[in-house]
Design a binder for these strands. Structure first.
Lengths: 143, 143
DNA sequence: AGTGTTGTTGTAAAAACTTGCAATAAGGAA
DNA sequence: TTCCTTATTGCAAGTTTTTACAACAACACT
């Protein structure tokens, strides 16, 4: 069985239905080992489930993100990419060349708790993407 | 004259050209007093510059963001919105209902400096959008 | 197992966004 | 002012993402 079945109880306990489409998409995210665009997910999951359609992929990814099973971050041009929720890290993207670096989650926890107390929101834990200028491009700008 | 002309020297000094399209788009962002989607910008700027096209708007917004004259943040569905760069604040968006709250910039400065020293990146100052669950939806979930 | 309810999906069409390339015009030099 | 260079734009076509709604199927209940 796919790793997706691991998530079935989580869905059912919240009153959502467990469908082949959701399982296939979770499976794809699970084995990707990184970020995937909706298009990537669609193409990969369609191999397991040929009648899968694009709107379903978009809706399911949004659904999974909303329920904390997937995380989303913005890739280069502002497009969204998704990954399975277990990877607790964030990114700093270079605004010049798109170069990407991971940031461990821990240093952000403090910030979340602070934001929660000042805004009254709960569960602030989004996968964030920071923008900056990477070391390589700093050299280029000077040259 | 529009407030856009205020930015002309900034562009020229970096070797970029000052065009009616860029001025019109800056003007629109300047007077919006908030976030605008690319579509919003297109429709508003086209009134001042009827032959303006959509690809130009998308390219210009990306250009302005890359050069620090505009800031981008992700709206509800993950779509991008832009605003003029002078507004130093961020958002916390409720992942259930989309409700939005502003966060002052100051508490994030410390985080940026820390990220810069650990990643080697510079100018980390992106307009961020955090996700969470707002007080209203917390009540709903309990009920 | 059979049935009903309603959350999910597929379909079809529209809207939003991107790309490649030829034409244009901004800014520098003569 | 005129010419030259090349950054920037418009055009046209393609791709991606969203929407509305009818058909379907997962789950609860009998």
């Amino acid at each position: 069985m796919s790793c997706g079945s691991e998530y079935a109880p989580q869905l059912r306990s919240r009153g959502y239905r467990v469908t082949p489409q959701r399982m296939a998409i979770l499976h794809v995210l699970c084995h990707a080992g990184g970020h995937l665009s909706p298009g990537d997910v669609y193409r990969k999951a369609k191999k397991e489930l040929p009648n899968l359609t694009e709107p379903t992929v978009y809706r399911t990814l949004e659904f999974l993100a909303k329920n904390g099973l997937a995380r989303l971050s913005q890739a280069g041009r502002g497009h969204l990419t998704y990954e399975i929720a277990s990877n607790e890290h964030h990114h700093v993207v270079c605004r010049i060349c798109g170069n990407e670096v991971e940031v461990k989650h821990a240093p952000l926890e403090i910030l979340y708790r602070k934001l929660e107390s000042t805004t009254g929101f709960l569960h602030i834990d989004s996968h964030l993407t920071f923008m900056g200028v990477c070391p390589d491009c700093q050299k280029t700008l000077k040259g």
